[in-house]
Structure formats: structure tokens, C-alpha cells
């Protein structure tokens, strides 16, 4: 065979592998780490899973801010458990990403140098205790809507990690809503605090469901790979429809004058989202972007001697054991 013939037959082989791969996904078969996969599938999954993991890790910071100042022991143990879950979720997801051939070290490097993104919601400040309520209720609520379809995604390790995450996440939302409920049944000042938190977190929560369908560059490919089962706009509508009645029970007002029940659509119409703000925050100009990265990188650097010491200790123990065997 000539060189060109070899090249052609290789291209043909890759095309047929790809067709077989797409057919497997269409049949709802799962893809496992050692299976053949198109390079783009691998890269897209590394990007999405690692960004998801980064979001869990950075997501601990806004809430960590309130652990020492929780108003009661009950609230404190719940918040601690929630933040610990987020660390766990980050670890499940990093492990899933590692099965695609990227190292943990490389992922941390991408996060710390700003190459990898994380959910932009965590670049907003948590200035009152009510923010813990609003985050649990709205941010975790939006996250659940994003995550439930991922339990059926085509990449096995990601789907399995998401099953665990989703199981644990529902307590997060309930603890947040309970905080809101308590404040709303409290003094007028406490209720005012809850309303203020809703005012600040409502729009960023809607943005969490991602750019509108006509602006979203990844939707089509992601739907094909079942990395997405519903479009951003569908998810956003679902979030609004289920959250508005919850706000009514709290006696709070959603900060959107255009919000209105649409009898014909059996859904809420809602106002224009400020996408300029969204892109500003994504690009690093949100109120807390710098602060979050400083805290994250600082924690990583201050922990370096601990990681090194643990490794040195493990190596020494191993050497001692080897010597005994001799």
C-alpha cells in the first residue's frame, strides 16, 4: 500500500469507529473509560466534568464565609455538612474526569491559572445570613435542575458520579428553604433580609442555567451526546415555574416586574435577563472573582507542606517495610 492508501484506510477506520460510537450512544449504551471515543468527545467531557468539579470546590467559599457565624448549632452543623458534601462532590467529579486521561494536578493548574471556568454564581458575595438560605434554595435548586438529566448522560463515570451528587443535593435545597422560611416568619427586619437576599440572587440563579438557546454554542453537540437532555431555556423555564410558588409560600416577591402567569402556555412569562452582566462575570469582572481565586490558590499553597509531609512519611514507612522484608 502506498502512503496515501494507508492514510485513506486509517481515515476510513476512524470514520467507521465514529459511526459505531454515535450508534452506541443513540442506543443509550454507556461509554466507559477504556472504550474508543472521538477526541472531541473526550475533550468536551474533560472540560465539562472538570468545570463542574471546580464549581463544587469554589462553591464552598461563599458558604464557608458563614460557618463560624451561623446563628445556632443546628444551622452550623447543617451548613458544615453541606459544605463537606460539596468537597465530596468535587472529588467524585475530579475522579470521573481523571478516567479520561487528565491528571488532578493539571486540572488544579487550569483552575488556579484561570484557564478553566467555574460556575459564575460563586463570584457574588454572601453579605448576610439570609444569603445562606437563598443559595440553598435558589442556587442548589437551579443546580439540581441542571444535574438531574446528567444522571443519564452517556459517559458512565460522569453519570455514576451525578447519581451520588443528586441524591445528596436535595438536603442542600431543603436546608436553604428552611432558613428562608424561618426568616420570613420572624421579625419584619428578618423578612426584609430574606427579601433582600432573593433580590440579589434571583437573576444570577437564572443565569446559572446558561446562555439562551440561540446563543449557546455547545447545546447541539451536547444534546447528541446526551451530555444535555434539555436546552438551557427549557431548564430555565422549569426552574422559574417551580420556584415562583415556593416564593409565594414564603410571602416574598420575585424581583421581576414582568413575571406573569401565562394561562395559554401554563408557564410563567418573565423579564429580560441582563446577559451583559453574565458575560462580565464569566470574563472575570464579577464582584468576587479575584477574591475567590485568591482564597482557593492560597489554601492550595498553604497546604503544600502538609501534602509533601504526608508523601515523605508514606515513602519512609514503605522503605522501612521493605527493609524488614530483606
Amino acid at each position: 500500500m502506498s502512503e496515501e492508501q494507508i492514510k485513506n484506510s486509517e481515515a476510513e477506520r476512524s470514520r467507521s469507529l465514529e459511526a459505531e460510537f454515535e450508534a452506541r450512544i443513540a442506543r443509550d449504551e454507556k461509554i466507559e473509560p477504556k472504550d474508543w471515543m472521538p477526541e472531541k468527545y473526550r475533550q468536551t467531557h474533560i472540560r465539562q466534568i472538570s468545570q463542574h468539579a471546580h464549581s463544587e470546590i469554589v462553591g464552598m467559599l461563599p458558604e464557608g464565609n458563614w460557618i463560624t457565624r451561623a446563628p445556632s448549632l443546628r444551622r452550623k452543623v447543617a451548613l458544615l455538612a453541606k459544605v463537606q458534601d460539596e468537597a465530596g462532590h468535587g472529588l467524585y467529579l475530579y475522579s470521573a474526569a481523571e478516567t479520561l486521561g487528565i491528571s488532578r494536578d493539571e486540572m488544579y493548574h487550569q483552575l488556579h491559572t484561570g484557564k478553566a471556568k467555574y460556575s459564575s454564581i460563586f463570584n457574588y458575595p454572601t453579605i448576610t445570613w439570609a444569603d445562606m438560605g437563598a443559595i440553598g434554595w435558589l442556587v442548589d435548586g437551579a443546580a439540581i435542575i441542571n444535574q438531574v438529566p446528567l444522571c443519564n448522560t452517556s459517559y458512565g463515570p460522569y453519570a455514576r458520579a451525578m447519581v451520588r451528587v443528586c441524591k445528596e443535593e436535595s438536603f442542600h435545597q431543603r436546608q436553604g428553604y428552611e432558613i428562608m422560611l424561618k426568616l420570613c416568619n420572624g421579625t419584619p427586619e428578618q423578612k426584609e433580609m430574606a427579601q433582600d437576599a432573593l433580590n440579589r440572587w434571583w437573576w444570577p440563579s437564572l443565569m446559572m442555567l446558561g446562555p439562551t438557546d440561540d446563543m449557546s454554542v455547545h447545546t447541539e453537540q451536547s444534546m447528541k451526546w446526551k451530555l444535555k437532555r434539555k436546552t438551557n431555556d427549557e431548564l430555565r423555564q422549569q426552574f422559574i415555574d417551580q420556584t415562583v410558588p415556593q416564593a409565594d409560600i414564603l410571602g416574598l416577591t420575585i424581583p421581576d416586574p414582568d413575571l406573569k402567569w401565562n394561562e395559554e402556555r401554563q408557564s410563567y412569562d418573565f423579564g429580560e435577563i441582563d446577559w451583559d452582566e453574565f458575560w462580565q462575570v464569566v470574563k472575570g469582572h464579577g464582584p468576587m472573582n479575584k477574591e475567590r481565586m485568591k482564597a482557593r490558590v492560597g489554601a492550595w499553597e498553604r497546604g503544600e507542606w502538609v501534602r509533601d509531609a504526608a508523601m515523605a512519611y508514606a515513602e519512609k514507612q514503605q522503605q522501612r517495610k521493605n527493609k524488614q522484608v530483606v
Binding site: 458534601d85 465530596g88 488532578r104 455514576r160 445528596e168 504526608a310 508514606a314 514503605q318
Partner: peptide
């Protein structure tokens, strides 16, 4: 259940307890 990073087997067990058996 999954995987994790640890310096040695003992730490791997302890981390596994915290990461995979919180409930």
C-alpha cells in the same frame, strides 16, 4: 464506588470513609 488520591493505604481508607460513606 470510585477513586481518590492519598499518600498511603491508611490515608486512602480514611479519605474513602469521608468521601464515599458520609451517610
Amino acid at each position: 464506588f470510585g477513586s481518590l488520591h492519598a499518600a498511603d493505604a491508611e490515608m486512602a481508607l480514611e479519605n474513602a470513609r469521608d468521601v464515599y460513606t458520609r451517610r
